[in-house]
Amino acid sequence: MGFKEKCFKKSLWVFHMSAGSCNNCDIEILDCLTPKFDIERFGMKLVGSIRHADVLLVTGIVTRKLLPRIKEVYDQAPKPIVVIAIGACACTGGMFKDSYTFKGPLDTVIPVDAYVPGCPPKPEAMLAGVVKFLNKK
């Protein structure tokens, strides 16, 4: 078990950052909070500031204009922080990889701990991703 997995066992506070995404992943993340999936029962919640967060969820491709802002958000985060790339765009660039504003997959910009692929990943998939990460041996 790594250091991060040891630190974050319960009640993760999540900050959600949309970097050039299409809103699909963002809405599905919000869906996790609503009664059907209700991750708040595990003490997880979305917070309004990165300075309160344990987990940084990033969706969408890294666009040129957002590149410095993503780095800045990551710098402001309290360490250690778990970064999860949500969706095909954040993981690889997906169908936008040929775009003139695309500046590389997320892991070329900031270190990424877990990837949840899919377009968009279902809320179940996101939960499964987090659980898999936490159970990593």
Partner: peptide, 19 residues
């Protein structure tokens, strides 16, 4: 639309635009 560091005189929708 473009970022602050976008080079001047580069217009992506022109035919002669090169990446």
């Amino acid at each position: 639309l473009f970022a602050e560091d976008w080079p001047e005189g580069k217009y992506p929708l022109r035919r002669d635009y090169v990446e």
